[in-house]
Design a protein around this nucleic acid. Structure first.
Length: 857
RNA sequence: GGAUGCUUAGCUCAGCGGGAGAGCAUCGCCCUUACAAGGCGGGGGUCGUAGGUUCGAAACCUACAGCAUCCACCA
């Protein structure tokens, strides 16, 4: 027999190992329809956090559900080498030992990085097991493994040959701490308080000065001009003169270009072609040179003269002091502006001219835009997230893909030092003088290939044929740009297909105050702690059922407790059923002819539940699906039918039928909760008679139309209303719940043996039928119930008058609605019918209430 | 400067065209042999504000306010 309490630790013990060993996670049953997904590969940078649970548990629910629905489901697991993130971590570790990556050299450094990867891969595997992910380990991949590396090379070479990858000198985002280029999405902008420096520039040939404002004085060593707007009357007369750069005394032209905003600052802007993207464009337009003043660590170079070797901020300070001394500083203002920080190192990113590899995005993005306008588009859930993709595709700049790192896919480009040639190819060219490009690729370059490269592409493998394109992808809205967008365009370009049919987008998990979980706040929550406390099933249930699709949610101990309580409820309901069935119960088919009214009721409710839950599961709406099941479990099954069954069984009539119904109901509840909470479901399932080796071999409950009958639900609803009314009556009268009470119905109650049920649940000492009524009354559609207490006529009349008033309101509402031609013409037929039925029921009730009032006269 | 989301019971959130819901908290009564991590009952809401559309609006539209997030090259 099951323990009295649900103990998550005991329940979780060993199950995952068994599932894995028995091969339940392995796909490949060719007799079934394929259904596939890929895991959002976690970075090998550390332990899993709650965000990963959110990324993977919905997938696991889908996988387990679809398996029960008869699909051959493949869920491909794997991990991401996470180039820059991992390298940053490894470098940090080395730094603590007092060494830098340059001390080690490339090869040694990579050895350390691979050791790191192995260590964290183990941790991640353990955590997947703990969370219960049913991934197919026989197909696990890593972004740096051989197959993925081949795919990466193939993509790079092909895009290069198509002219979609090129090497160019452009302004890129430079992380001076990690000393690498970054893509736009790896730069996080924040509004930081800085200073706005107003400098006086002498205008040559006049005794006038012009004021130029800047936030980055140290870049003045690279200035090639000062610009004003041609329409700016203040400066028109000076255009064409030269001005003196107060940083280095150089004479540079004062020019006019409409790019300059008259309103902003002083309306005069310095132009630094090598350190600002806009200035870069201006310089190209006017043919200025590009003067770099910073080195790769953001220290000043030789152009800065006496400041050479100084950190950019020290230089700024010193330079401003000197200019001030020389009388060329007008003022310094506090200034809040948007500053780019490296996503990984946090360093202030420096825009810098640099030679890098780029992907030409426009043709690739246009393909996606066209596809999204076609029937083969990727469907987003919720739909609004498609806009995020479209916006990115519409605005995207060329993608800087080279990184000056070591951990990653080395770029398959080879330079010949002797001839100066460059070749891009899968293999290193033969001959003398060839050297491979030192840089590696942006980590998202490989993750972009994840859905097809993990299945064997560029080879036409059986897995690729069978499982690609994948069915669904589940991920957070925060990486639509980083990942989803890139998978979509690479997939469409290389496989001619969208990588997945549907993308399910979830929100982020926040702390209890609604703040983002972050290292610096120290408010992160370790899923392992949560599991230790509440069990993994409660965590899974909590995280998938506590926010509407696509919205953020807050972590909440309270909700986890509620989830654990719910599971305890299911546990105990099962326990009751098993105690009732007895040790040697053998499941039998239900004899439908023998069904009593209560059995018909619960079976009908069960059908309604299966139908609705399934339809919400099919929409991947786990909040809605779980809510429907929850209501059935508590209200219909536990509070009502299960209690009723105690009386039914005590009467020994229809025992076999009642048992069969209890068995069916509890079994199907377990099957429906299973995708959410596989551990407790397996435990309970295995404790039921007539089980297979594992719940993983079961199929989903099947909706049975013949058992679904709203008519059959009426009696249950009536009984429920009576229980609730009489209990409420006792409470209002100050009677104890178990106070004895006499009940009478005006006619024969439409259910045999009602007195037994009312006796047990309402402590009715007597239940009369066809009685003349005295006492407080409850009027139902087809029957009236009175409570035969000492009658206080005035109280009774007051309560009946209150009923009458309510009913009058209801009836008039119904009459008004049904008397409205607009309503009759425009409202759906079912609604009109429902209103008609409601109206006639209310009219009947009203008549009954009035009859009672008449009797009192 | 653009864009999106949110605003519903004390708290956290569902609902998103046909009679205001859940969990927790609160109050009252119950150790009833599935469950006290429980049962039963109760109280608590002009659904941010103002207009509009509709037979009917918490839900749709418009404006406004507050909060949050994303994007953007204002030197």
């Amino acid at each position: 027999m099951l323990d009295k309490r649900y103990d998550p630790k005991a329940v979780e013990q060993g199950k995952y190992q068994t599932w894995k060993e028995k091969g339940y996670f392995t796909a490949g049953d060719k007799s079934k329809q394929p259904f596939s997904l890929v895991i959002p590969p976690p970075n090998v940078t550390g332990k899993l956090h709650l965000g990963h649970v959110m990324d993977t548990v919905p997938d696991d629910i889908i996988v387990r559900y679809k398996k029960m629905m008869g699909y051959d489901v493949l869920w491909v697991p794997g991990m991401d080498h996470a180039g820059i993130a991992t390298q940053a971590k490894v470098e940090e570790k080395l730094r603590k030992q007092g060494i830098s990556r340059y001390d080690l050299g490339r090869e040694k450094f990579l050895e350390v990085a691979w050791d790191w990867k192995k260590e964290y891969a183990n941790t991640i595997h353990e955590q997947w097991a703990k969370i219960g992910l049913s991934v197919d380990y026989t197909r696990e991949r890593f972004t740096l493994d051989e197959g993925l590396s081949e795919a990466v090379k193939k993509v790079f070479v092909t895009l290069y040959e198509e002219g979609l990858i090129y090497q160019g000198e452009k302004i890129i985002n430079w992380d001076p701490e990690l000393r690498t280029a970054l893509s736009n999405v790896e730069v996080l902008h924040s509004d930081d308080e800085g200073e706005f420096f107003y400098f006086l520039y002498d205008i040559e040939g006049t005794s006038e000065q012009i004021v130029v404002a800047t936030t980055r004085p140290e870049t003045m060593f690279g200035d090639t001009a000062v610009f004003v707007n041609p329409k700016d009357p203040r400066y028109a007369k000076y255009v064409g003169h030269n001005v003196i750069n107060p940083a280095n005394g150089e004479s540079i032209p004062l020019m006019a270009d409409p790019y300059v905003d008259v309103e902003f600052g002083t309306g005069a802007m310095k132009c630094t072609p090598a350190h600002d993207p806009n200035d870069f464009l201006l310089a190209k337009k006017y043919g200025f040179p590009f003067i770099k003043v910073l080195d790769e660590s953001a220290r000043m170079n030789e152009k800065a003269g006496e400041y050479q070797g100084m950190d950019r901020y020290e230089c700024r300070k010193a330079l401003v002091a000197r200019i001030k001394e020389q009388g060329h500083l007008q003022k310094i203002e506090k200034f809040v502006h948007s500053v780019g920080h490296s996503e990984r190192s946090g360093a202030v990113v420096e825009p810098m001219l640099s030679k890098q590899w780029f992907v030409k995005m426009k043709p690739l993005a246009e393909r996606v835009l066209a596809q999204q306008a076609s029937p083969d588009k990727v469907e987003f859930l919720p739909a609004r997230f498609e806009k995020v993709l479209l916006r990115w595709m519409n605005e995207v700049d060329d993608w800087c893909i080279s990184r000056q790192l070591w951990w990653g896919h080395r770029i398959p480009a080879y330079h010949n030092e002797l001839t100066g040639e460059t070749i891009v190819s899968m293999e290193a060219p033969k001959g003398e003088g060839w050297k491979q490009d030192e840089d590696v690729l942006d980590t998202w370059f490989s993750s972009a290939l994840w859905p097809f490269a993990t299945l064997g592409w560029p080879h036409k493998t059986p897995d690729y044929d069978r499982y690609f394109p994948t069915s669904v992808l589940n991920t957070g809205y925060d990486i639509i740009f980083f990942w989803v967008a890139r998978m979509v365009f690479q997939s469409e370009h290389f496989t001619d297909k969208a990588p997945f049919k549907t993308v399910v987008i979830h929100g982020l998990i926040r702390d209890e105050q609604g703040r983002k979980m972050s290292k610096s706040l120290g408010n992160g929550i370790d899923p392992i702690d949560v599991i230790d406390h509440y069990g993994v099933d409660a965590l899974r249930y909590f995280i998938t059922t506590n926010s509407a699709p696509g919205l953020d949610m807050r972590y909440s101990d309270e909700k986890l407790q509620a989830a654990a309580n719910y599971l305890n409820k299911i546990w105990n309901a099962t326990r009751y059923v098993e105690m009732t069935l007895g040790e040697d119960y053998v499941p039998t088919n239900i004899d439908r002819k023998a069904l009593g009214a209560l059995e018909k009721f619960i079976l009908s409710r069960l059908q309604a539940t299966i139908k609705k839950v399934q339809s919400k599961m099919d929409e991947y709406n786990f909040l809605a699906a779980s809510g429907i099941l929850y209501d059935f479990v508590y209200d219909d099954f536990c509070s009502f039918y299960l209690e009723m069954s105690k009386v039914s069984l005590a009467k020994k009539e229809d025992e076999a039928t009642v048992k069969a119904v209890l068995y069916k109901a509890v079994r199907e509840i377990i099957l429906m909760i299973y995708p959410y909470c596989p551990f407790i479901a397996e435990e309970l399932y295995l404790s039921l008679p007539g089980h297979k080796d594992s719940i993983m071999l079961e199929s989903y409950p099947v909706y049975d139309k013949a058992l679904h009958s709203p008519k059959a639900e009426k009696l249950g609803a009536l009984l429920n209303a009576i229980l609730s009314d009489v209990r409420g009556y006792k409470s209002a009268k100050g009677l104890a719940p178990n106070a004895s009470i006499r009940l009478a119905f005006d006619k024969a109650f439409p259910f045999k043996g009602i007195e037994d049920y009312l006796g047990r649940f309402l402590f009715a000492s007597e239940v009369k039928e066809n009685a003349s009524l005295r006492g407080d009354a409850f009027v139902y559609e087809d029957t009236t119930l009175t409570i035969e207490e000492d009658v206080d006529v005035e109280t009774l009349r007051a309560s009946l008058l209150a009923d009458e008033k309510t009913l009058l309101f209801e009836v008039s509402r119904g009459e008004k609605m049904l008397g409205n031609p607009g309503f009759l013409a425009k409202a759906p037929k079912e609604k009109v019918d429902a209103e008609k039925e409601k109206l006639s029921a209310n009219q009947a009730k009203l008549a009954a209430v009035r009859a009672r009032l008449d009797e009192l006269k």
